[in-house]
Design a protein around this nucleic acid. Structure first.
Lengths: 149, 149
DNA sequence: GTGGTAACAGATACTTGGGCTCAATAAGGA
DNA sequence: TCCTTATTGAGCCCAAGTATCTGTTACCAC
């Protein structure tokens, strides 16, 4: 490949993550990386597929799975049970999802792990993992309503 | 209906919950209630369908949805993403799921709501709901391993 | 009891979301 | 350049759940 499109730094970072794990950085994967890097919120597999009409169905699903395995993407479970994906170059974390505008914020400074460990102990459980999604209304949506009211 | 099978108290409780909301207690629903009341752990829609071979596909799904709406069942999300159902005559609560034997315990005495409210506040979010599943190994599975080791 | 009406059940076709397979192709090392 | 292996894409397939439609049942008024 003599001429490669210029990619965003975030897309490059995604490709580096793949290379680090020994995966090849093929043209379809570069395309996926670029599109994923451009998303500012969570998206479904179907949405990603529509953004990459030239790619095969299977390739899109495989790429998503790959990026989740590598830790570039994380899965986000919406209140209605729908599965979405979202950038995640950080480690384990949770999301605050706005039920109105759909934006999501990473949950930081959250001491939930401690609370869970303590509670599990009380029940005789050895904690191995957890899944938490938090739903609510973000600052913007709340202030918009306050203005219009 | 002159002769009705005797039902377990728990099954009766389920039917009462339906009646309270104005739903009819039909024969298929009685069958679903009895089977659901007999389960001592979470189950899938498919499993329920197999336990009720006489019932139509749609009826099983409709009944599940109904029982969730009424609050008799709650949905349980397994670590692999599979959706299960489980009795829940209590209000909002969470589950400790054993990844080995599949048993689940309700999480009580958990002050996670407080932690979440505080954290949401810090992010400007107005909390409306959350989904939490906790995975680990239960007391029994741990002691079994300790013995065999 | 009988009859009317609205809720309900069941069959089945359809949609959605994703996995599997396999031949063709591309990447990268020797 | 050649060889090996990973990757791709097309198409088929499958499972889970939904929509629709027709026949049935429960409940209420009489």
């Amino acid at each position: 490949m003599a001429t490669r499109k210029r990619m965003s730094p975030l897309a490059e970072q995604i490709l580096e993550a793949l290379e680090e794990r020994g995966y090849r950085t093929t043209e379809p994967r570069r395309a996926v990386a670029q599109v994923v890097a451009n998303q500012d919120r969570h998206f479904t597999a179907e949405e990603l597929r529509q953004m990459l009409p030239g790619l095969g169905r299977a390739t899109v699903f495989r790429s998503l799975k790959l990026l989740v395995d590598v830790g570039v993407l994380c899965r986000v479970l919406l209140e209605d049970g729908a599965l979405h994906y979202q950038m995640s170059l950080r480690g384990h974390h949770h999301h605050l999802l706005c039920v109105e505008c759909g934006i999501s914020q990473d949950l930081t400074g959250c001491d939930i792990e401690d609370v869970l460990t303590q509670t599990s102990d009380r029940h005789g459980f050895e904690l191995s993992g957890h899944w938490l999604e938090v739903y609510g209304r973000c600052r913007d949506c709340r202030s918009k309503e306050a203005v219009s009211a």
